[in-house]
Lab assay of single mutants.
Amino acid sequence: DEVRLHVNGHTIEFRGIDEEIFKILEEAAKRGADEEELRRLAEKLLR
């Protein structure tokens, strides 16, 4: 299960996240989070 999030012209792939987590990451990206911040956030949410 892989999703792709487009951030500042880059595509970031995440594996094993559900739609709810994806929406949180998408919102963070809209607020200016970079790839590293998004990955840290995803790790926290998946715990």
Rank of each mutant, 00 (worst) to 15 (best):
D1E: 12
D1C: 09
D1G: 11
D1L: 12
D1F: 15
D1T: 06
D1A: 08
E2N: 09
E2C: 04
E2H: 12
E2W: 12
E2Q: 08
E2M: 11
E2A: 10
E2K: 10
V3M: 15
V3S: 08
V3C: 12
V3T: 07
R4G: 06
R4L: 14
R4I: 15
R4H: 13
R4K: 14
R4W: 13
R4C: 04
R4V: 11
R4A: 11
L5Y: 01
L5P: 04
L5N: 02
L5K: 02
L5E: 03
L5Q: 02
L5V: 11
L5M: 05
L5C: 05
H6N: 12
H6M: 08
H6W: 02
H6I: 13
H6A: 07
H6R: 05
H6S: 13
H6C: 09
H6L: 09
H6V: 15
H6T: 14
V7I: 12
V7W: 08
V7Q: 03
V7F: 09
V7T: 03
V7A: 04
V7P: 02
N8V: 03
N8F: 03
N8S: 05
N8C: 07
N8H: 06
N8Q: 06
N8M: 06
N8R: 02
N8E: 06
N8G: 10
G9P: 02
G9S: 04
G9H: 03
G9D: 05
G9W: 04
G9C: 02
G9Y: 01
G9N: 04
G9K: 02
G9M: 03
G9I: 05
H10Q: 08
H10E: 08
H10K: 10
H10S: 12
H10T: 12
H10V: 14
H10A: 07
H10I: 13
H10W: 04
H10L: 13
T11R: 03
T11S: 12
T11V: 15
T11C: 11
T11K: 03
T11G: 04
T11P: 06
T11N: 07
T11F: 15
T11Y: 15
T11H: 05
I12Q: 02
I12M: 08
I12W: 01
I12E: 03
I12R: 00
I12S: 02
I12L: 11
I12A: 02
I12K: 01
I12C: 05
I12N: 03
I12D: 03
E13I: 15
E13K: 07
E13W: 09
E13V: 15
E13S: 10
E13N: 08
E13Q: 03
E13A: 14
E13C: 06
E13P: 03
E13R: 06
F14I: 07
F14N: 01
F14H: 01
F14Y: 04
F14L: 07
F14C: 06
F14D: 01
F14K: 00
F14G: 01
F14V: 03
F14T: 01
F14E: 01
R15H: 15
R15K: 11
R15S: 12
R15Q: 12
R15D: 11
R15C: 10
R15E: 05
R15L: 12
G16E: 05
G16L: 03
G16T: 03
G16P: 04
G16H: 05
G16N: 09
G16D: 09
G16A: 03
G16F: 06
I17Y: 05
I17W: 05
I17P: 02
I17V: 06
I17D: 03
I17G: 04
I17A: 03
I17S: 03
I17H: 03
I17T: 05
D18R: 05
D18M: 03
D18N: 14
D18W: 07
D18I: 04
D18V: 04
D18L: 04
D18K: 07
D18Q: 07
D18Y: 03
D18S: 13
E19D: 13
E19K: 13
E19P: 12
E19F: 12
E19M: 13
E19I: 09
E19W: 10
E19V: 10
E20P: 05
E20G: 11
E20L: 09
E20N: 11
E20R: 10
E20K: 13
E20M: 13
E20F: 13
E20H: 14
I21K: 09
I21D: 10
I21G: 11
I21Q: 15
I21S: 10
I21E: 04
I21T: 09
I21L: 09
I21R: 04
F22E: 02
F22H: 05
F22L: 10
F22V: 10
F22Y: 13
F22A: 10
F22W: 05
F22R: 10
K23D: 04
K23N: 08
K23Y: 10
K23E: 06
K23F: 08
K23H: 11
K23A: 08
K23C: 04
K23Q: 09
K23L: 10
K23V: 09
K23M: 10
K23G: 08
K23W: 07
I24Y: 11
I24E: 08
I24T: 06
I24D: 02
I24N: 03
I24H: 10
I24K: 08
I24S: 04
I24F: 09
L25Y: 01
L25W: 01
L25C: 01
L25I: 05
L25Q: 00
L25T: 00
L25G: 00
L25H: 00
L25M: 03
L25A: 00
L25D: 00
L25P: 00
E26K: 11
E26N: 13
E26S: 13
E26Q: 14
E26H: 08
E26P: 00
E26I: 11
E26W: 07
E26L: 13
E27Q: 13
E27C: 10
E27K: 09
E27F: 12
E27R: 09
E27N: 08
E27H: 12
E27T: 12
A28N: 06
A28I: 05
A28S: 09
A28T: 07
A28H: 12
A28R: 06
A28C: 06
A28M: 10
A28G: 02
A28D: 00
A29M: 07
A29R: 03
A29S: 09
A29Y: 09
A29P: 00
A29H: 05
A29T: 04
A29Q: 06
K30W: 12
K30V: 07
K30A: 07
K30R: 13
K30E: 08
K30C: 02
K30Q: 11
K30H: 09
K30L: 07
K30P: 00
K30S: 10
K30G: 08
K30Y: 13
R31G: 09
R31W: 14
R31P: 01
R31E: 12
R31A: 13
R31L: 14
R31V: 08
R31D: 12
R31N: 12
R31K: 09
R31M: 14
R31C: 08
R31I: 08
G32R: 00
G32H: 01
G32D: 02
G32F: 02
G32K: 01
G32A: 01
G32S: 01
G32Q: 01
G32C: 02
G32V: 02
A33V: 08
A33N: 03
A33D: 04
A33K: 04
A33W: 11
A33R: 03
A33E: 04
A33P: 01
A33Q: 06
A33H: 06
D34G: 09
D34C: 02
D34Q: 07
D34W: 04
D34N: 12
D34E: 10
D34Y: 03
D34I: 06
E35V: 11
E35H: 08
E35L: 08
E35K: 06
E35G: 07
E35Y: 08
E35A: 06
E35R: 05
E35Q: 07
E35S: 07
E36T: 11
E36K: 13
E36G: 14
E36I: 11
E36D: 13
E36S: 13
E36M: 09
E36Y: 15
E37S: 10
E37D: 10
E37P: 01
E37I: 08
E37W: 08
E37L: 06
E37T: 14
E37R: 04
E37V: 06
L38M: 02
L38S: 00
L38Q: 00
L38Y: 01
L38A: 00
L38R: 00
L38F: 02
L38E: 00
L38W: 01
L38V: 11
L38P: 00
R39N: 07
R39W: 06
R39F: 10
R39Y: 11
R39D: 02
R39S: 05
R39L: 13
R39T: 04
R39E: 04
R39V: 09
R39H: 05
R39C: 07
R40I: 13
R40N: 13
R40K: 14
R40H: 12
R40E: 14
L41A: 01
L41F: 04
L41E: 01
L41D: 00
L41Q: 01
L41H: 01
L41R: 01
L41I: 09
L41K: 01
L41Y: 06
L41C: 07
L41W: 03
A42W: 10
A42C: 15
A42P: 00
A42H: 10
A42R: 01
A42S: 05
A42L: 13
A42D: 00
A42Y: 14
A42G: 04
E43N: 06
E43V: 07
E43A: 11
E43L: 03
E43W: 09
E43Q: 09
E43C: 11
E43Y: 05
K44A: 06
K44H: 15
K44P: 00
K44Q: 10
K44R: 08
K44E: 14
K44G: 07
K44L: 12
K44M: 12
K44N: 05
K44V: 09
K44C: 05
L45C: 13
L45Q: 01
L45V: 03
L45P: 02
L45N: 01
L46C: 09
L46H: 04
L46D: 04
L46E: 04
L46T: 08
L46V: 12
R47K: 15
R47L: 12
R47M: 15
R47Q: 15
R47D: 15
R47F: 15
R47I: 15
R47T: 15
R47E: 15
